[in-house]
């Protein structure tokens, strides 16, 4: 058994008296498609922000791609890719210019041309290089964002609500790409609201009020809450318990 690429142990993040993340633990294996699920305010975003090295935990530890998130956030940043919920690229730059910018940001040097070509090929962007990012369709934007986030061949990629507002055909293509990347050995960590997408995860963690409610493969989670329920039902139940 290899060492998990992400190890989260008793992670806590408090804002004053409020515990946004409360004693959460899980491991993620290399090449897994791992889901972080939960209603709004469940601690998903705070967890991701800590794992990306943007926020230090109040207590507990986590390592991502071999780097400690609290002690070495800069190393974490150079080994992960992050795709934010809102389109975080420059709309007034072309597809090629956005890719070149991120190639520079990740200091690719001589590998730049090769990696940009890789990104355009793998993300199905080859036809639209000279187009402004602002005029792309939702699916194209999302693939461009993933290409930029993976420009430096990271070991772990975080995708925050990646398929929000994207049409079904583009969503399907995006999931194909995510599976291709995972097959290459890249760990894909995804948050989503779409319950039909939850079935696509290799494993997932359910968070509610900052606490871990369930962890495992979709089948294991269903079993845990009674197998007659779908994941969507479980999600709704958790949300109702919250309010």
């Amino acid at each position: 058994m290899t060492t998990p690429v992400v190890q989260v142990a008793s992670l806590v993040k408090r804002f004053g008296d409020f515990a946004a993340v409360d004693d959460v633990s899980f491991d993620i294996e290399r090449g897994e498609i791992f889901g972080i699920l939960g209603p709004n305010g469940s601690g998903k975003t705070t967890t991701i922000r800590m794992l990306c090295g943007l926020m230090s935990p109040t207590s507990g530890t986590a390592t991502v791609a071999g780097a400690d998130i609290a002690r070495d956030p800069d190393r974490v940043k150079s080994r992960i890719g992050y795709m934010s919920q809102s389109f975080g690229l420059y709309r007034d730059l072309t597809v090629d210019e956005n890719l070149e910018f991120y190639a520079g940001v990740y200091e690719l040097g001589a590998r730049k041309t090769e990696r940009i070509a890789w990104g355009k090929r793998e993300m199905r962007l080859e036809e639209i290089g000279p187009r402004l990012a602002g005029v792309l369709s939702g699916g194209q934007r999302q693939r461009l964002a993933l290409a930029c986030a993976m420009m430096h061949a990271p070991e772990v990629v975080f995708l925050d609500e990646p398929t929000a507002g994207v049409d079904p055909a583009a969503r399907r293509l995006f999931w194909t790409i995510i599976r291709e990347r995972a097959a290459d050995g890249v760990t894909m960590i995804v948050t989503t609201h779409y319950m039909d997408e939850a079935e696509r995860f290799d494993r997932l963690v359910f968070l509610s009020r900052g606490r871990r409610m369930a962890l495992g493969t979709p089948a294991e989670v269903k079993a845990q809450f009674g197998s007659h329920l779908s994941l969507e039902d479980i999600f709704v139940q958790l949300q109702e318990k919250e309010s």
């Binding site: 943007l54 940043k77 150079s78 975080g88 200091e107």
Partner: peptide, 12 residues
């Protein structure tokens, strides 16, 4: 526009 959020997750 949210581009800063993307920037601060890079080694910049």
């Amino acid at each position: 526009t949210g581009t800063l959020e993307q920037l601060i997750v890079t080694p910049l």
